[in-house]
Structures are given as C-alpha cells and as structure tokens.
Design a protein around this nucleic acid. Sequence first.
DNA 1: TCAAAAGTGTTTTACCTACACCCATGA
DNA 2: TCATGGGTGTAGGTAAAACACTTTTGA
Lengths: 231, 231
Amino acid sequence: MQENLPKFDSVFTIDCVIFGFDEGELKILLIERNEEPFKGWWALPGYYVEQEESIDHGAGRILYELTGLRDIYMEQLYTFGDVDRHPQGRVITVAYFAMIRLNGQKELKPVNTYARKAFWHPVNELPKLAYDHTKIFERSLEKIRRKISYQPIAFELLPEKFTLTQLQHLYELILNTKLDKRNFRKKMLNYGILKELDEKQRGVSYRAATLYKFDKRKYARLFQKELSFNK
Amino acid sequence: MQENLPKFDSVFTIDCVIFGFDEGELKILLIERNEEPFKGWWALPGYYVEQEESIDHGAGRILYELTGLRDIYMEQLYTFGDVDRHPQGRVITVAYFAMIRLNGQKELKPVNTYARKAFWHPVNELPKLAYDHTKIFERSLEKIRRKISYQPIAFELLPEKFTLTQLQHLYELILNTKLDKRNFRKKMLNYGILKELDEKQRGVSYRAATLYKFDKRKYARLFQKELSFNK
DNA sequence: TCAAAAGTGTTTTACCTACACCCATGA
DNA sequence: TCATGGGTGTAGGTAAAACACTTTTGA
C-alpha cells in the first residue's frame, strides 16, 4: 500500500451463519469464544479477514479454522458497520450464510484456539450472543425465509434421500407455519426437481414413505434463469 | 482501539450507485475523479468511511460531499472485497444504491475537491469506469431488476405526477422488455397504490393522458408486510 | 384530416386454496 | 387390531396472458 492513502485503525471481520437441520430442529453453528472480549460467550464463527485474501476466501478459511468444516458454499448476507458494534474499536463485519447437510453429525473440531469448541444450537432457544451477533442471526433467518419462498433451497439442509413429509416439516419449521399436505406435495412434484426413488423408508412403525432425491440439474435450469416480470 | 487487537493496513470505502430517470433514459450518477489513482476517469461516487461514523452514515455523507445531494435513502447492495480491486492496496468497499427523482435536474456540486464534477450518465452507453466500478454497477442493475419485479419501486424515479404510459416505459427500460399495455395498466391499478388525479397532461400534440400520483401509505401497507409462502 | 398516443374487455390458462378419507405397516 | 403417518383428487377462485379497436387531441 502506498503512503498517499489514508490509514485508518480499521478492521474487517467475517461472521458466518451456518444453518443445519437435525433431530427435527433448525440449528445454527456457534462457537464458544476463547478470547477477550466476550471470552466464554457463544458467538457466530467469525474472525479477521487477512490482508492478502478476498473476503469470499476469508469466509471459507475462517469457517474451517473455527469449526473444521471445509468447502461450504456461502453467500454474502449483509455488512454490519455500526460504530459501536465492537467494544474495542471500529470493526466492520461482512456476514455470510450457508445451509448445509448434517450427514451423521461429524464432530466439529476448531483448528484455531480462538474457538474453544464449535457446536450446533437450535435457533428457537438461542441465548444472548456476543457482539451484535443476535442481530446478524435474525437478519439471516429473514433472508432464508424470503429465499425459500421463491427457491426450494431447503434441499441443502436435508439428507440426500428424504421423504416428502420430511421436506414439508422443514418448510414449516423455517416458515413457522402449517402447510397443507396435498397442496405441498402437488406443488413440489410439479416443479419437476424431485426424483422419486425405488427405495422406501425403513425401520418406521407405520407405512414406509417413498424416498426422493433432489435433481440438481433441473433445479439449476428452473431457478437460475432470469426472473421475469409478468407480461 | 486497544492494542491487543491486530492492526491491518485495511481501508473501507463506500461506493454509491444512484439511478435516475431523465429524458426517457435510465441514468446513473458518476463523478470525474480529481485524484490518483484513475485521475480524470469516471467513477461511482465513493470515498473512505470515517472512523467514527456508521457505514450507513458514511454512505449519506460521501454522496453529499461528492455530488451535493442530501437525504437520499440508500440501501446496501453488496460488499466487494477482492484483493486486487484497488491498485494501491487492500480496499474493501460497501456498495449502496438508490433510485431518485430528478426534479428539474438541479446542478450537482461536489463539496469535496476529490471529485472534479458530478453528472448523470445513461446506463446504456457507460464507458469503462475506474476500479471494479463497472462490476458494481452491473450488480446494482441486476438488483433493481429483481426488485422491481416484486415491488413497484419505479415510482421513486418518476416525477410526482406521471402518466401510466410513462410508468410503463420506465418498467420496460429497466427490464429491457416490452409489456402489454392493457395488462400493465390493469395490474398497476389493481395494486391500489395509484391515486388518479383530476389533472391531465398538458402541451402534448395528442390526446392528453390522465396523471397519477403514488400513494405512499397504501404502498407501505402492501409491500412492507411479510412475504408469505403459499399454503 | 392526420398522426400519435390514450384508453378499454374478454377469453383462456395456470396456479393457489380448501377440504377428508382410505391405505400400509410394525408394534 | 390399532395407532401412526402415507398417500390421493376435485371444485372454486384469482391472477396472468394473449389479443385489437375506438377515442381524443393538436398540429
């Protein structure tokens, strides 16, 4: 950096809101902080962006270091830049979010000692979080609610094979509402992005449900095209 | 800021994409830079965020200093943080956008000498802009396209009194498509957010069109409520 | 009287909504 | 055989899409 640019005591960080679905609950990934300020508090995984990395790269790196999770596709949510959001000075944070599949709940191992541990926490009973992380979380919840209403992103949270009822429950959870079973199934199947499998649910004490898979290619064709105003 | 926080040679800036509608064209506000790098180039109005101001505040201040425009409601668009986006070092920028009404095209007077002048430029024939500002502009155009498809934000660009045809032309311009006149009018009037005035267009050499006003209160009631998934 | 834009209605189609019963399975 | 969720269809309403002609005005 050349000298003729002003220098500020400014710091940027990244914070990640990672949603998962487990045991019938919507959860987010939290860490227990191992550093001041807010030592011992729970917080979103977040840390400083390095000088020589893009913020997208930083988001991936930080998530890995604090949780051991790798190669998660995250989307930028919003940038929070109130003056007093950090007790020690001016820290602007770029929030990212992602929805991921919890295959068998692998253990989360922070690589960085900055996090004492990382764990999944149900969104319904979140405690007070460090900094303005509660606000960041709330904004991300609004975001996925809005998004799920026009793109079936819920698949990202489900196991590879799932039943329509599981899918419906997830929608109901995220949207905090009840949906009509027949209408829900009709609509989902109509999208044409579900592949019905020959397989059925196993080990349930009631009629076993058909399993479905999500068809990524058809999904992309349907939802990545331009949104169009109705003529 | 306390000493125990790492210090980076990092700088944040704000860049503003301000849309206006004039002479039947969609325009954005550009400045001519009066400082290196890119001295003499055209760029989005943008500058450094100060230490003791929130980024929202910074956006308003910077726009005022570079253009003389005040009290414009801007919305955060996206944060751009590639490593090489600024030739002199690491600069992360938060982009904001707004759509404003050009009442009689007041002259734009930069308060800061950093901008030699500020002016409106049609979006269809934009030259190469400084930094990655072309990319920022393109992203903001996508954003208003998407947004106008579910919220009638086009009003913000129009004069207080406007005809339905003017409104339709603006939609067609932003969406880059032709719309059916009858369907367009039906849909717009059905929203119930337009007040028909007793007044007609004047000074045109054809049948004068009825003027309409935008009903802010009804608009707010309609579009600020929660989006709901269809049951 | 001509040019130019204003203004207007109907039919078809697609999708959303509401709603209730029988079926298959394991305990 | 019972409890539990799986699975299915139809009718009514609303909104979008397609489509063409008459009216008004000033030049």
